[in-house]
Structures are given as structure tokens and as C-alpha cells.
Write a protein that binds this DNA or RNA. Structure first.
Length: 104
DNA sequence: TTCATGACCGTAG
DNA sequence: ACTACGGCCATGA
């Protein structure tokens, strides 16, 4: 059996560089279409280790909403290094960079 | 078991 | 464009 948390981690690690996913998308792919908050909570508590590319996760509006200033700056930088356009408001062009996981 | 928490989401003003 | 509010639900104490 795979816990929701494990699924989320697996899905996030499967996001290719240069692409982003929303919290809601990850939650839906993990089996909880309304579980976006769990994804955020999971990342908040697991981001320390686990080698997670958490910077590829943005909210449904393509906006970076992290409270922590250092983390927000790091996420913006990481995305730009991967070729993702991030404007000065911390917004990403979802239409062009959203990642659609393959169904199985 | 119940209770509180949260890097969200969608709708409304 | 912006803020405010309610609902959502897995996790940990």
C-alpha cells in the first residue's frame, strides 16, 4: 500500500526539469482531487531532506506563495535556471510550462 | 477518538 | 487587479 504522502513524493520526483505542477494537480494525481492542502503541508514538513524538487510546485494561478523569503527566492532562481520564465511578481506561465503526468 | 494545522482552491465582492 | 471567506482532507498530538 502506498500512503498519500508517498504517492505525492513519487509524483513530484517525476516532474521533469523546466516543467511545473500545481498543488491541486499533484493531489489529484495522488488520488485526492481536493487534497491540495495536504500537498502543501507535506512539503512544509518533508522539504528538509528527501531530495524533492519542491520548487516545481506552484499554486493554481502559477504564483509562488511560500511565506519564507529565502525559500521563495530559491524557488524563483531554481525555476529560472531550468528555463522557466518567472516574472518579478513570482508568477509562472502555466499555459506553457505545466506538466501533465501520464496516466497509468 | 477528537482536535488543530496548513507552501491550497474556488467563488464572491 | 486585489482581499476575504468557507471548504477541503491527510497527518500528528
Amino acid at each position: 500500500m502506498q500512503l498519500f504522502t508517498e504517492k505525492v513524493i513519487h509524483i513530484i520526483r517525476a516532474i521533469p526539469a523546466g516543467k511545473v505542477m500545481t498543488y491541486g494537480q499533484v493531489a489529484a494525481a495522488a488520488g485526492s482531487p481536493r487534497g491540495a492542502r495536504q500537498v502543501s503541508r507535506i512539503l512544509h514538513s518533508m522539504s528538509r531532506n528527501h531530495n524533492l524538487p519542491w520548487h516545481r510546485i506552484v499554486n493554481a494561478q502559477g504564483r509562488i506563495v511560500i511565506q519564507d523569503d529565502e525559500a521563495r527566492y530559491a524557488q524563483t532562481n531554481s525555476l529560472r535556471e531550468e528555463g522557466v520564465a518567472v516574472d518579478r511578481c513570482g508568477k509562472v506561465d502555466l499555459a506553457g510550462y505545466r506538466h501533465f503526468p501520464e496516466l497509468k
